[in-house]
Write a protein that binds this DNA or RNA. Structure first.
Length: 279
DNA sequence: GATTTCTAGCCTTGGTCGGA
DNA sequence: TCCGACCAAGGCTAGAAATC
């Protein structure tokens, strides 16, 4: 299973993360042009596309039912107004970019999700809601938004090395929501006629979410990937290494150490300084 | 020294909550 | 009942840090 998460931006372009069911980011890119969305979807072959934006204006008024239902659970969001209230307001420009992303996704064969199976559909997701639902609480007071969401991703077992910006983290949360939805763990409050926000849980609690007191701990999975450091190795192990791969790791470290010593010798020979952190 | 990248802070809208 | 604080995501600007 592969899910493509898209974080919408106006001036800074789109951020895109492709996650597979091993929770490894297979593709990460930033500053993607809106005109390239259909091509990116075609190149990456996702099973589902998850977009951090509403697909269209509200039918009427200044908010949608899906946003009001999430607000009742203490998950506050930016409300999507009707076209009469939104058009011409620069503040809602990012939403209009999101509408165009949904149009591009539909052109690539991923129509907007409203109900039923999410496979082959473009879902509306909300990274803040995803993080709250997965953590089971709101972010603790004083915890940075970026740091907390990264911790939520790690707690779910997602590799976050390449997710250096908040926009990439949000795109990864979107993709993770897509994977959960494919797996049957999805809930979409609201009226399908005006758009629904998909969250990664089969049901929502009866009582509002409360503020948490600690950042989520990293998951302790039953199996992990072998730590030998070889990019071609994808063995699952219960300890740290696959049989024989501890020796493979040691050989690699020895080679690095020898190269390091050679590099230090060359720096010394040329009269250049060591890196600041080694002085 | 110039350029690029990153980060923090402030602003936008609308709904909710708590205190006066 | 009213008012202020808070929260969401993105744009914009200024300053700091890193890189060339």
């Amino acid at each position: 299973m592969r899910a493509l998460g898209i974080d919408v931006g106006v001036g800074k372009g789109l951020d895109v993360v492709l996650l597979d069911d091993r929770l490894v980011p297979l593709h990460v890119s930033s500053r993607v042009h809106i005109g390239d969305v259909a091509r990116v979807i075609g190149d990456l072959h996702p099973d589902v596309v998850a977009i951090d934006s509403p697909p269209r204006w509200a039918a009427s008024g200044r908010s949608r039912l899906t946003e009001r239902e999430l607000a009742a659970l203490n998950i506050s969001s930016f409300n999507t107004p009707s076209e009469a209230h939104g058009v011409g307001n620069k503040f809602f420009a990012w939403m209009q970019v999101g509408f165009e992303v949904f149009t591009q996704a539909a052109a690539a064969g991923f129509p907007t999700y409203s109900a039923g199976s999410p496979r082959g559909k473009a879902l509306e997701v909300f990274p803040h809601a995803t993080a709250v639902v997965l953590a089971g609480c709101l972010a603790p007071k004083g915890s940075g938004k970026h740091a907390w969401r990264t911790a939520v991703l790690r707690a779910q077992g997602v590799r976050t090395d390449e997710l250096r910006s908040p926009d990439r983290v949000d795109a990864a949360l979107a993709a993770l929501t897509g994977l959960f939805a494919l797996d049957g763990r999805r809930f979409a409050p609201g009226d399908p006629r005006e758009g629904v926000i998909v969250v990664p849980s089969a049901a929502l609690p009866a009582v509002p979410y409360r503020r948490g007191t600690a950042v989520p701990r990293e998951a302790q999975p039953l199996f992990t990937y072998c730590a030998c450091g070889d990019a071609a190795c994808n063995r699952l192990v219960r300890g740290e290494f696959a049989p024989g791969h501890d020796a493979k790791r040691k050989a690699r470290l020895w080679a690095d150490a020898r190269q390091g010593a050679e590099a230090l010798d060359e720096l010394k020979a040329r009269g250049w300084k060591k890196p600041p952190e080694m002085r």
